[in-house]
Design a protein around this nucleic acid. Structure first.
Lengths: 188, 188, 188, 188
DNA sequence: AATGAATGAGTCTTCATTCAT
DNA sequence: GATGAATGAAGACTCATTCAT
């Protein structure tokens, strides 16, 4: 049983941070969830804050990879938009705890500079993609940030609903919402 | 200066909870921010959890009142939508800490049943309003929850950007986003 | 009962540090000895290291005061020597824990700069006094440090013996040892 | 390199105990200093306390051997005194860590009975030697313990000064101090 | 009513010791 | 024999809560 304790600890922490927040989660809670001794956590992470930052950066990197993977670089903008939308949704559904954790943690006081700049880099990717569409005259005359608010904000809220069962994810529903988002941002 | 300590404590707690979260905020921090003794807080609130719940319900009630106030009951649906959109935005801008606090707290493990059901009641108000529009055939064939995700999610993200200065709130911008949201939900 | 907790904590800490050393003494031990809650210690001292340093400086100051008090400024050197000798002995006997604590702590890794320089200042007082005797040709041609080793070293060891009962302090004995020390340092 | 790990561990422990004290030194610190795995220490010593006691007894034995070695059994008392004095100084200078460790540990709470009695036996050797001089009428009318305080105390303090550079050891200086000590104890 | 000193349960973190490799 | 990863008991320190003033 080649257990990867480092990984187990991160997973356990992610779950608990998503559920209870950073300060509401104790190290022994993480240890129990990860099925390791409390002291073991300190073999892998200098302290709780380093742990949460490493977890954050890892989650953001994974998130970014999900978006970039299979990006239709040479298709038209409509396809790119659809790709990003569905990948965001996919990540929020496949890694609901990671997604929730990232969003709850973005502005947290315990994030270090590295973590903050990693996340900004990720957001820049989305922003650049939207700017491209704007330059092509396909999007409305609004700042890229506004598009992010619409698309990312929508998906963020959607994922909450999927998680607590308020809404059932279904292909048709997602297609409808994707269409809504596109209509919200595309030039008339 | 007949200060209202009860009110001061709630305001101080809201500010700190919005900044650092519930568990990251200590009772002495709240006391200092409210300029009262730590013991005084326990004259007004049974304990920290009762305090956060009372604060949550008060914030939600105020939020709901903001939406209901001046609601154009007898105008057409487009006006009602516009009213809700702008009131949401207004609340998020006038009470950014309350708005941030509510959103960060909605699914928190320390909320009691009363608080959860109060918030649901509030969401129901928005949902009923949207259902009305759906029945009138003005909205797309999507569940009301999807519309909430789009409108509320967008505004939530927007308010984050306004708060951290990523985006400047301007009438024109808000009008554009309101239009986007309407286009996202209205039947084609 | 106007308890002085600050004082009680220092006294308790001194006793335990003298018996078990700094690292061998736990904060709860100090709390129990001082009959206060463990948390109370942190109302009075920032942390354990600040506590030990404050205690050290206080002990050194008291020690220095004992020496300086009644110093026969205008008598001859032999009287001054006798005064210092007896005051060193008196302090070591009246405050055996303080004396032992000071000597065990002088070179400790946890002493801060302030504490170190305070102790040096104290030693300088003794050194200056000895230099005076040397200049007057009353002492042998040895560095003042050597005299300190002889006098202070002797008294330090003596106090250990008084403490553990190996030797009974008696006026006659002390007079004999004082004579020995004088003979050890005085010019022939 | 058939290293003697047992020896290496003791040496490492001695160095660290001398610098930081028993409780301020961790087993992993010793392991690192001794260049062995932490677990290896437990192959050679039952636990940390057994280790420190074994080290103490070894150091005392070595110290005693240094004194006894070359003892001028058949010379006169003055020569014997000189021998003991110089051997004490030599040991303190050649094994400063051992010397410091012994002196810091003599009254420690973690010493077991065996260690305490070993040390007493060592002190008895010095005491007997002094008693002999007393019976011969060469020493003052003071208890042997007082002589020990003077001689041992002086050398102990001296070694501290040599270690921290306050005083430079030089043959002339040592000769002067030996003379001082002899004058302090010898009958007038 | 208001305070803040006092408390001890509960945090994060360390470290003596064990044990699988 | 040797190692160092793993552990959990224990240490330093914090904080929600109480209570004498």
């Amino acid at each position: 049983m080649a257990e990867n304790k480092h990984e187990n600890i991160l997973r356990a922490a992610q779950k608990l941070f998503a559920e209870r927040g950073y300060d509401g989660t104790t190290v022994p809670m993480i240890a129990e969830e990860a099925k390791v001794g409390a002291g073991t956590i300190y073999r892998y992470f200098e302290n709780k804050q380093k742990l949460v930052n490493e977890l954050f950066r890892g989650s953001v990197a994974q998130f970014a990879a999900t978006l970039r993977d299979g990006f239709p670089e040479h298709k038209d903008f409509r396809d790119k938009f659809r790709h990003v939308f569905y990948r965001l949704v996919r990540y929020s559904r496949e890694q609901p705890e990671a997604f929730r954790f990232i969003n709850a943690t973005v502005n947290a006081y315990f994030l270090d500079e590295q973590s903050k700049s990693d996340f900004e880099g990720f957001m820049d990717f989305i922003e650049r993609h939207l700017d491209e569409g704007k330059e092509a005259g396909l999007l409305r005359d609004l700042p890229a940030q506004a598009f992010i608010a619409i698309v990312y904000g929508t998906i963020f809220h959607l994922s909450r609903m999927f998680e607590d069962g308020t809404l059932e994810p279904a292909d048709e529903l997602l297609a409808g919402i994707e269409k809504s988002c596109w209509d919200a941002v595309s030039a008339v």
